[in-house]
């Protein structure tokens, strides 16, 4: 069945969209793990852990995502590391967003009311139990809105991976443009696809927030 213009452009772009979604999903998983690792690392009692976390956060927040991507893609081969666009893309997107996420995790955990830690001490919880049973579960709810923004930035940054020749949505659009010269239609559809994805992330995170905060009082968080 032949689709009439401009919808005939959708199937080829859809293939690219699937790659973009994989890239974004992988990046989100990695970013979330790194955000917790480095965010809680910055709150650690051990100085080397704190220092390592802070250095990671400063480096990846202080440089450009595209520069990070090119550095990994062009420089790692010099060290004899074989690189492919997809894993490098996920790695860089995750590292970059994870650094921003670390600040969110640290800030939210710190913002849990002081009384909650004191109650935990009075009940004999160890510092680790206090963190995972009392502080993190309360902090997660207030992490969701800023994390939603970080995930959307990650989705947007995934377009950069086209510049190291991964055939995700943007790259597909560029090749399709070269073949068909229907530039305006292609980019309009691509923009709508990205916009749809960021709306889905935003709505999903808002739904999660509503679910998690149901029935509980956020009085513990100031």
């Amino acid at each position: 069945m032949a689709l009439s213009p401009p919808f005939d452009l959708v199937p080829p772009l859809y293939q690219g969209l699937l790659i973009t979604l994989q890239l974004t999903a992988g990046g989100i998983v990695l970013a979330t793990a790194l955000a917790f690792l480095a965010g809680l690392g910055k709150l650690s009692h051990h100085r080397p852990v704190r220092w390592l976390s802070a250095t990671y956060v400063e480096i990846f927040r202080g440089t450009s995502a595209l520069v990070q991507l090119f550095w990994f893609y062009f420089v790692l081969p010099h060290f004899g590391v074989h690189v492919e666009a997809m894993p490098v893309g996920i790695l860089v997107l995750g590292l970059n967003a994870g650094a921003y996420g670390a600040e969110v995790v640290r800030g939210s955990v710190n913002a849990v009311a002081k009384g909650q830690r004191e109650a935990a001490v009075s009940l004999g919880f160890s510092p680790r139990q206090t963190l995972w049973r009392i502080l993190v579960p309360q902090a997660v709810v207030s992490m969701l809105p800023p994390m939603s923004n970080i995930y959307i930035e990650l989705l947007k940054n995934s377009a950069l991976v086209s510049l190291v020749t991964l055939s995700e949505l943007t790259f597909t659009a560029m090749t399709l443009r070269a073949d068909t010269l229907r530039t305006g239609a292609i980019f309009s559809i691509v923009l709508l696809m990205y916009f749809g994805c960021s709306q889905v992330i935003s709505l999903g995170m808002r739904g999660l927030e509503a679910r998690l905060s149901r029935g509980r009082d956020l009085g513990g968080i100031r």
Partner: peptide, 26 residues
């Protein structure tokens, strides 16, 4: 043990879990 002016209950746990969490895990 201690009871505080501002209660400091754990808002993310039910009343019963507030009471059982420390006995179970500590």
């Amino acid at each position: 043990g201690m009871v505080f002016q501002h209660f400091n209950l754990f808002p993310h746990m039910s009343v019963l879990r507030n009471v059982t969490e420390a006995p179970v895990h500590v």
